[in-house]
């Protein structure tokens, strides 16, 4: 008798909850827009937030409602933008894909330190202690917050303690730029065209040259050299207008500290990766 009761009780309870769940699932279904699901399907699903929304689902919702553009997904690039546009039956708009660029070349051999830092190996932490251990308060600390922030494995720490971007892998999501406490990483449109002033220091010339051999000293030699008036001085830092720059290279010749580089001549990721790999191997064998 006892066993019958046990079986009945458990059976009825199970049946009750089964029915209850089945009914509630039917009654309380949340209608999700099939279009949103379709858009969500073609997105990369990395939930990186580069589009400005919390995740891919939120972005999909915004696109369907017309609040976001079809090419808003930066990591997905052209392919995804095309697919999203196709799902929604809209015209495809060319997406300009940005790429992360590090605006500092003052590595450990070129820029001085102010004190020996022995704390947590994070740029954000180091930066908060007396303005960082680097003598230049604008320069890269090289502790790799950007490397850890990158979910696409596109940034690696180079040989002399400066991050190097693999432009092939970089999706332009901007997570590294956000992670950098000194705002050294900027997002630029992808491409090899143009010249860049690879320095972020807004200090005066003398202050820069005393701490870093390759920082912009605001001497204005490049401004005079530029035949197309593409360079302006903004708060002690030369800035090149990429629209006007025609890659003549006059400024590179005139730049005394050697801060200006042709974009295509920025040390490529491969070299730095090879160097890093060799160093690691060395460590392992040791």
């Amino acid at each position: 008798m006892l066993m019958t009761y046990a079986i009945l009780t458990l059976g009825i309870l199970g049946l009750f909850f089964g029915l209850l769940l089945a009914v509630t699932a039917r009654v309380f279904t949340v209608q999700s827009d099939p279009q949103v699901d379709a858009v969500r399907e073609v997105l990369p699903g990395a939930n990186c937030g580069a589009c400005g929304y919390a995740g891919c689902v939120n972005f999909a919702g915004a696109v369907v409602q017309g609040k976001a553009k079809t090419n808003g997904c930066i990591p997905g690039g052209e392919e995804t933008a095309r697919a999203v546009a196709e799902v929604l039956g809209q015209k495809f708009e060319e997406a300009v894909q940005p790429v992360a660029t590090v605006f500092c070349i003052g590595d450990v051999t070129r820029a001085a330190d102010r004190y020996i830092y022995d704390g947590v190996k994070e740029c954000a932490a180091a930066n908060s202690i007396y303005g960082g251990f680097k003598a230049c308060r604008y320069g890269c600390l090289g502790l790799g917050d950007c490397v850890r922030a990158c979910i696409f494995d596109a940034i690696k720490m180079g040989k002399h303690g400066l991050p190097v971007v693999d432009s092939e892998k970089c999706t332009g999501c901007g997570l590294c730029a956000e992670a950098c406490p000194r705002d050294i990483i900027k997002m630029l449109p992808k491409g090899e065209q143009g010249h860049l002033v690879l320095c972020s220091s807004h200090d005066r010339g003398k202050a820069v040259s005393s701490v870093c051999s390759v920082g912009c000293i605001a001497c204005k030699a490049c401004i005079k050299a530029c035949p197309r008036d593409a360079i302006v001085m903004e708060d002690n830092l030369a800035v090149i207008d990429q629209e006007k720059c025609d890659d003549c290279g006059e400024c590179v010749l005139k730049c005394k500290p050697g801060t200006i580089h042709k974009r295509s001549a920025i040390p490529t990721a491969d070299e730095a990766f090879a160097a890093a790999g060799a160093a690691e191997e060395k460590k392992e064998t040791a």
Binding site: T9, L10, L13, G14, F17, G18, L20, L21, T24, A25, F28, T29, V30
Partner: peptide
């Protein structure tokens, strides 16, 4: 029975709450 009831209940509440 407690396991059954708790699991069923939480599932139920989740569905209802979502709506």
């Amino acid at each position: 029975t407690f396991i059954l009831v708790i699991a069923g209940l939480v599932q139920f509440v989740e569905i209802v709450m979502r709506k």
